[in-house]
């Protein structure tokens, strides 16, 4: 909430910079939540704004790859499911913008930063959705990876972010299951359909592993984020969890994952797997992915084409307000 402040003045002696810092650190150490109007270090606030905004942008841009299939869904059932899923992603974006705004940044400003390319979104949404099997694989892999990332964020130290994540996680499970169910249906269909599923799996597997970000040794901000308990696990740990979770699901589905190094490691009790092409990740983040330009262009156009709606609504609200004022004066 961004609200006006009243009440007693701050206690003398208890609000110096050192006291504030100490109180903040004690809150983190006790695993309590930091709330919007608490004092917090600038770096903590900046990191949160960047992370939450980029997360919000990812949800919004993330609608596009799947939305492309809404009009071509093979049945009314699949179309209704896909519509609901894409609508959820819009909702996730809005929960997150709402959380970001509690840090004192304006929603319109965040939108500008996205449209001007000053803030990023997840690299995964810069890949194309070539067949309807891609819709299923996105639900299974991309939403599955999102769940791995987001479940620990439900305990993030910043209250509004953690609460937004709780809402998001409740909805993600539907996303992952509808994707997996779609693929199960296809794998029990024709040979061509099974090949379509395997092809989609082959194309999305490595980009999905890249969603967890660069390896820990190249992720300089991670340590600070973990110290602040914004993040709870390292990129590599989350990637490992995703692999461990997904391999048995792939076996149950009857598809192979395109990694010759993938094998169960008895000693570790986890799967060993190959290294994603992190140079590709860097290129896609820099804007050189197959669909970066298309995604941004679509987002810009949608925003511009919606301008008249925003203007009309504002004009209507102003007119209503002046009418009710006149009514009261009479």
């Amino acid at each position: 909430m961004t609200t006006t402040e009243s009440g007693a003045p701050p206690a003398p002696g208890g609000t110096g910079p050192a006291d504030l810092q100490e109180r903040f650190e004690a809150t983190i150490a006790r695993d309590q939540r930091v709330e919007p109007r608490d004092w917090m270090p600038d770096g903590y606030r900046r990191t949160l704004i960047r992370q939450i905004a980029q997360h919000a942008h990812s949800e919004i841009i993330g609608m596009q790859p799947e939305a492309a299939w809404i009009t071509r869904a093979p049945s009314l059932r699949r179309k209704a499911i896909l519509l609901a899923k894409v609508q959820d992603e819009a909702g996730h974006g809005l929960y997150l913008y709402s959380a970001a705004e509690t840090l004192g940044v304006d929603r319109a400003e965040l939108n500008d930063r996205l449209l001007e390319g000053r803030q990023k979104y997840s690299s995964i949404f810069n890949y194309p959705t070539l067949t309807f099997a891609d819709v299923g694989v996105i639900g299974w892999f991309v939403d599955g990876a999102a769940i791995c990332n987001q479940v620990p964020l439900c305990r993030s130290s910043y209250g509004p972010y953690a609460r937004a994540m709780v809402r998001v996680c409740k909805e993600e499970s539907f996303h992952q299951r509808q994707g997996y169910e779609l693929l199960r249906t296809m794998t029990r269909g024709t040979k061509a359909q099974r090949e379509m599923v395997q092809d989609a799996v082959n194309r999305w597997w490595w980009p999905s592993l890249m969603m967890f970000g660069p390896p820990d040794e190249n992720s300089p901000n991670s340590a600070q984020s973990m110290a602040w308990k914004i993040k709870r696990h390292s990129n590599d740990e989350l990637r490992q969890r995703f692999v461990d979770m997904t391999v048995p699901q792939a076996e149950a589905l009857g598809v192979t994952l395109p990694d010759p190094e993938l094998r169960w490691n008895e000693e570790r009790g986890r799967y060993d797997f190959g290294t994603p092409d992190f140079d590709e990740l860097v290129r896609v983040i820099k804007g050189e992915g197959p669909c970066n330009a298309e995604r941004m262009e679509r987002r810009r156009t949608a925003h511009e084409e919606g301008a008249w709606v925003r203007e009309a609504a504002a004009a209507h609200a102003a007119k209503q307000a002046s009418r009710s004022k006149r009514g009261m004066a009479a």
Binding site: P10, W39, E171
Partner: peptide
């Protein structure tokens, strides 16, 4: 409320809310 999460909704302009001061443990 996309999944029946509510039976009633209140909305209020944020700038109309009056709130206590910064720190929850403050002298207030």
């Amino acid at each position: 409320t996309r999944r029946n999460e509510g039976v009633s909704i209140w909305v209020v302009r944020s700038d109309l809310i009056t709130a206590s001061t910064r720190e929850e443990r403050d002298p207030f």
